[in-house]
Design a protein around this nucleic acid. Structure first.
Lengths: 236, 236
DNA sequence: CGGGTTATTGAGGGGCATCAAACCTCGTGG
DNA sequence: CCACGAGGTTTGATGCCCCTCAATAACCCG
């Protein structure tokens, strides 16, 4: 299973922000804007709940889960991100984050200060529009994904999750038919609103029906059509 | 139960876009931008799935449900909006809407062309930021709301829904303790991912415990603390 | 007042949570 | 190198919540 790392900035969601600098002096320009790179070992947090964020994070490799801790103390995974995607969009709301972003696998990222985003947006309206477009896109696809989750049974939810991961990995230029799922059964369960055991049984079922090939965290999508049927299945 | 209508533009989410015109010539400026008002009877659509949207809609009164029709033909409510809120945010993504927006109660709205939004944003960066902030805010609160739904039982889901409605009505300047819910049990059920019967049973239960006073569609929040406890209840 | 839609209430069955135990995986240290 | 242990995963048995089907009741509008 190849490691999933962006081979450059071209597939990055925030490409527009960085690429807009003059090519010859790009590095200097990016440094002046405060853009920096970093790495994160498994289990470490990109940011914590309550923290006042002033940057977006573009993932170069790895995977992140955003965890919400409720008043009662229970935690649940409210969002997952993979290479090529942006974490910390909620920071644009200008209030402390209510979620913590934890590395599920070793992760490399670019940190892009909000000030840089704002500066580039102001001098290049196209970038502002692009950001807006990205937000709206993310919003409506999240809405659809969630609504498809809430109405369906366990196997369909897992199918939808796998398809979603596949689509998003492909968007970043990876192989969407065969990939290693960084997230544990427990994380997936939390994200999908069910128990670890039920997620496991769903994977077993999909494997038995030869729709997926499941080898622990390594997945192969054998029959994408059937997977899509399951995910879109209308219970009503 | 008083009708819920914004008494002006001050509580409108898109106030920034319109209010930024010169006061003396505001009407003319707004007309030039293509901002217009309209009304919608019950059951009529603000826009249809597949339609290419070129405007945002700010609700002056009434309530809207956004319905997603799946490949299989089944429909589900993926979003609800009340007076003071904006419908059609997905149009910022620049592709045809996948949802239809249907009036649940008689609705009055302002139609604000995207061109107007872009024009104002360009000449006033503050407005662009405000829009971005609004999007991010909407996104993260939707995320939290949904994640609280997905993990909880029927009574908690309904409690969370009622609280959410209450909060949003208050934000627009209405009474959040006592209001008429425009949405039918069926709509609520679809939105919350359960059946009409279960929603009904949940309301009955909340009424029996005197946490809500339920008279068909008229609700009174008797013990908001307990309601919040239920909504935030951590099953795990 | 009557027809149609919407809401409520009841009885029964199925899917998922829960509890429990065995198995696998992988890093750690002997 | 392998034994060991801790966490992750799978599988099984049982009970409960919610969906389904069905009937009655309330509401709304002509």
């Amino acid at each position: 299973m190849p490691e999933q790392t962006l081979d450059g900035c071209r597939r990055c969601s925030l490409h527009g922000v960085c690429a807009n600098q003059d090519a010859p002096r790009r590095d200097a320009a990016l440094r002046r804007l405060g853009v920096s790179r970093g790495t994160l070992p498994v289990g470490r947090a990109l940011f914590h709940a309550g923290q006042n964020l002033d940057a977006l994070f573009a993932l170069r490799s790895g995977s992140i889960k955003e965890v919400l801790t409720r008043p009662g103390g229970s935690e649940s995974v409210v969002h997952v991100s993979v290479a090529g995607e942006v974490v910390g969009i909620a920071s644009l709301a200008g209030r402390p984050s209510r979620t913590s972003a934890v590395a599920v696998t070793a992760t490399r990222y670019c940190r892009i200060p909000l000030a840089a985003v704002a500066a580039v947006s102001n001098e290049t309206p196209g970038v502002a529009h692009e950001l807006m477009r990205m937000l709206a896109e993310k919003m409506s696809s999240a809405q659809e994904f969630v609504s498809s989750l809430i109405e369906q049974d366990a196997v369909s939810r897992v199918a939808a999750f796998v398809l979603d991961m596949s689509t998003r990995l492909e968007r970043a230029g990876f192989n969407g038919d065969r990939f290693r799922l960084g997230f544990s059964r427990r994380d997936i369960a939390s994200y999908l609103g069910m128990t670890m055991e039920t997620v496991s049984r769903a994977f077993t079922e999909l494997n038995r029906r030869r729709i997926l090939d499941v080898r622990a965290k390594d997945l192969a999508l054998l029959r994408i059509g059937d997977l899509r049927l399951l995910a879109d299945a209308a219970t009503t």
